[in-house]
């Protein structure tokens, strides 16, 4: 099975390389910049990159589609993040293929182009198993697959022309206050026992004392109580 991944950082490139390994066959990745392309070449046999500016879904999806036209994948694997979901929706509608989000495991069936997909449904309270036929676009939940180490020999790197964005973009990077959950060695996590946003100060204080980061579980994430939009929900927890 030929897999084309989309990754906008090293961690996702390594996680989706593991997911592609689980399916077997050739794997390539599309990344939105030259610097990441050189890193990704340690993980994939082929790397496509475009010199894209700040995230704009239509142009990112168009560049990814261009890479797909060249690589001809059976399956597109994307991060189950806000950006990944947008690209998956645009790409699958352009290609006329099915998509699945919140996927926690994938396995290819021997002898045909079917993939067994397990995904979270009903806000993460249930899991459903589907049989999907390739081609398809799949958004994988963060942490479902471990980060894979480098493979032998660097992969081939191809540049894809950057399409014009469909909208103008004004980007303000997130101001980083203290340690971030995705990087910290210690994460203090608040759950439903926390009754008010004021009580979160206790959690933040403990995280500071331990030199770590703080975050929240899904019910609190749904109330946007977490430090980062998305943390605690599928794709981030």
């Amino acid at each position: 099975m030929r897999v084309l991944a989309y990754a906008d950082n090293r961690s996702w490139a390594a996680q989706l390389a593991s997911a592609a390994d689980a399916l077997g066959g050739d794997a390539a990745v599309f990344v939105p910049g030259r610097e990441l392309a050189d890193d990704a070449a340690k993980l994939y046999s082929e790397v496509f990159f475009s010199g894209l500016g700040p995230f704009e879904p239509v142009s990112y999806s168009a560049a990814f589609s261009e890479a797909a036209r060249s690589f001809k994948p059976d399956l597109a694997l994307l991060p189950c993040t806000n950006k990944g979901r947008s690209i998956a929706g645009l790409y699958s509608s352009a290609a006329g293929i099915r998509s699945a989000t919140d996927v926690i495991s994938l396995s290819a069936r021997a002898g045909d182009s079917s993939i067994t997909v397990r995904r979270l449904v009903y806000g993460g309270r249930a899991e459903a198993e589907f049989l999907m036929s390739a081609p398809a676009a799949i958004c994988v939940v963060q942490g479902s697959y471990p980060e894979r180490g480098p493979r032998g020999g660097p992969g081939q790197v191809h540049e894809v022309p950057a399409p014009d964005p469909a909208s103008s973009v004004d980007f303000k990077p997130k101001r980083r206050e203290g340690a971030q959950p995705e990087e910290a060695e210690v994460v203090v996590v608040a759950g439903r026992g926390i009754r008010s946003k004021e009580d979160l100060e206790l959690v933040k204080g403990l995280a500071r004392a331990l030199g770590g980061a703080w975050s929240v579980t899904r019910p609190l994430a749904a109330d946007q109580a977490g430090p980062t939009p998305g943390w605690g929900s599928p794709g981030w927890s």
């Binding site: 998956a88 645009l90 699945a100 989000t101 009903y122 469909a166």
Partner: peptide, 19 residues
């Protein structure tokens, strides 16, 4: 319930308009 968040992007893709 499903929170797939792909319907809007797909509509934009099909209509060929900004998202």
């Amino acid at each position: 319930d499903t929170h797939a968040s792909v319907i809007g992007p797909m509509i934009a893709g099909i209509l060929g308009i900004p998202l």
